[in-house]
Design a protein around this nucleic acid. Structure first.
Lengths: 191, 191
DNA sequence: GAAGGTAACCCTAACCGTTAGCCTTTCACA
DNA sequence: TGTGAAAGGCTAACGGTTAGGGTTACCTTC
């Protein structure tokens, strides 16, 4: 993953990283709204067009590492031991993700996101994509012969659990409680 | 509600309506992305600033009548007969809302919304607000002594049911199926 | 190792949604 | 009738985003 696949791609990755690091630093220093794309570009010493060739939007600069999220959720489904029940596997993974997102170091970032309507909206739309990916993973699992609707609903419920837990006072307990509900909902779909 | 409370307010309402009608017509004629705010303002014969004094954003022009939505959901909770079970009441209301949204005349509008990422994202963020209002209504109901987490989760599940049903091939059956899951989830939270 | 192709990057200028500042008209109410 | 305020208008600008067109640096192939 970190091996050199050619100078060109290494330079590209370095540029991307420099932009992301600079952006996050400026956002945290001065506030998201107070920093313009032109500021980020200038500070990272690249052109504005270069920023947008690496990131689809200003908001995307903040959520650089969210590829993980989707993959971790779907892998919690696809990579679980055979015959391991689905919901506890998802529960465990969500708990880990919630801990990651409510960890000490993430507090300023979290506060920034909650403070910006644009960022909250963007995060919401990411959640929708994650739910769709998770629904696809559920539908593809041969051990779970559930309807497409049941898969889609369960996927959204799991994303809801994550979102609720991240904002809750006691994230762990909240995730536990919501997953009790999800477990019951899932069992109600048994064929 | 439709009585004349003074000329000024009538004129204001007329302006607002004219803007909304013009916008929707132009959007459907030429496509959402192909119509600018300046076009809408010119065609409605008002200033751009007037458009934004009536609507918070371009997307809001499309969802003019969504105040209904939130109120209908919360009223399905607050106005239901005493001791009527919660979930069937919500189920019935969601079915009605889904029928409304998948009716014949709504097809072009629906297609337009689905075709624009900006509109989809906006609708998502509206959903979040609706879920919060519904969660508040659930938490306030004296007959349902459930935890705040249970209320919030159930509210999101209900919104999920609506969203899934609106996009499904068979909206009615989809809502039924998801509400069977919600019923089970809700029962699992009984104190 | 030289030649050609192309990916990454730069610059300029613009588009579009949105807002600020300030002015004019029109209504409500004393 | 006069006065304050709300609704609306005009102009200019800001900030995210993109198009167009050029330059450099890397990879490939001979």
């Amino acid at each position: 993953m970190t091996e050199p696949p050619g100078r060109r791609e290494r330079k590209k990755a370095a540029t991307r990283q420099k932009i992301a690091d600079t952006a996050l630093r400026l956002f945290l220093e001065r506030g998201y709204d107070a920093v313009g794309i032109r500021d980020v570009a200038a500070e990272a010493d690249v052109a504005v067009t270069t920023v947008f060739s690496h990131f689809a939007s200003k908001e995307a600069l903040v959520f650089e590492r969210d590829h993980d999220f989707e993959q971790r959720l779907t892998r919690a489904v696809t990579d679980r031991p055979p015959h391991e029940p689905l919901i506890p596997a998802l529960h465990r993974e969500v708990q880990a993700l919630v801990r990651h997102c409510t960890a000490e170091g993430s507090a300023p970032l979290r506060r920034m996101i909650e403070g910006s309507p644009a960022l909250r909206e963007y995060e919401e739309s990411m959640s929708l994509r994650h739910a769709q990916a998770l629904a696809a993973a559920l539908a593809a699992d041969p051990h779970l012969s559930r309807s497409a609707t049941a898969c889609r609903a369960t996927a959204r419920f799991v994303i809801d659990a994550y979102a609720l837990a991240c904002q809750a006072d006691d994230p762990g307990a909240t995730a536990d409680e919501v997953f009790r509900m999800i477990q019951a909902a899932w069992e109600a779909t048994a064929p």
